[in-house]
């Protein structure tokens, strides 16, 4: 067919519709490529690089979540280079943040034989829990900087731009204007960010309080903060 391309993934030939990403193409033949930052509902930024694959003829590994299948492409999803990159990324993540609320990543670590203790004396990104609004808590020690919350708060969904980034490089953290509390921002408590957060860095207040050992009836009383109306 004219609008199809044929390629091989891990030696298996297949044909997919033009414009299909390698990630989706692989899924069609049951080859699983891991992802962290990718989310169907948000713009792909290809920033976690856990999905990288080796494409013959390309000097660098390619992110499968955005690279499109092309005619005669030869893709390796589990080559030694790919495995090294994935393992190292996972080990660096584990040495940086609290993954306890990210079961999918913990499973990946097992699969890639990644050790959480690989990097001794490594500086971690730690921060205190921010509990400043009736709807959700923010625990950026668990944030893996997937950007989804910033994106849904802005042009991917809500268009209120309540949150953005602080710092840069390793010290990047999601933050508000001059570190204001959530009720002081343009946040409308829509909860979209909580919905897309993969790690429990953003968590419904109720869930958090239950985890802290509170009883549901106690929470009912507390959780009556009025929704802030936008003017």
């Amino acid at each position: 067919m004219a609008n199809e391309v044929s390629l091989t993934i891990d030696g298996q030939p297949l044909a997919v519709e033009q414009g299909t990403t390698l990630l989706k193409a692989a899924q069609q033949i049951g080859v699983d490529i891991p992802t962290i930052c990718f989310h169907e509902a948000t713009t792909s930024n290809a920033l976690c690089r856990i999905c990288v694959v080796e494409v013959e003829g390309q000097r660098l590994l390619q992110p499968a979540c955005i690279v499109k299948a092309a005619q005669d492409m030869k893709v390796q999803t589990r080559s030694e280079r790919v495995k090294r990159a994935r393992k190292t990324i996972l080990e660096m993540l584990a040495s940086t943040m609290d993954l306890s609320d990210a079961p999918a990543i913990l499973m990946m670590m097992k699969e890639y034989n990644a050790s959480a203790e690989r990097f001794p004396d490594a500086e971690r990104r730690e921060s205190e829990i921010k509990d400043d609004n009736p709807m959700y808590i923010r625990d950026y020690s668990k944030c893996l900087l997937c950007w989804r919350c910033v994106q849904v708060c802005a042009d991917d969904a809500q268009y209120v731009n309540a949150i953005n980034f602080n710092g840069r490089g390793f010290e990047t953290q999601i933050g508000t204007f001059f570190d204001k509390t959530i009720p002081e921002t343009t946040c409308v408590l829509c909860g979209q960010c909580v919905g897309v957060c993969p790690t429990g860095a953003l968590k419904p207040k109720r869930e958090y309080l239950l985890e802290q050992g509170m009883k549901p009836e106690e929470i009912g009383v507390m959780d009556t903060g009025r929704r802030k109306r936008r003017t």
Binding site: R49, I50, A85, T88, F119, A122, G167, G169, E171
Partner: peptide, 13 residues
Amino acid sequence: CGKCYPCQMGTQR
């Protein structure tokens, strides 16, 4: 810049 994981954490490590 801190955008992608390999560089964001790799440069630190």
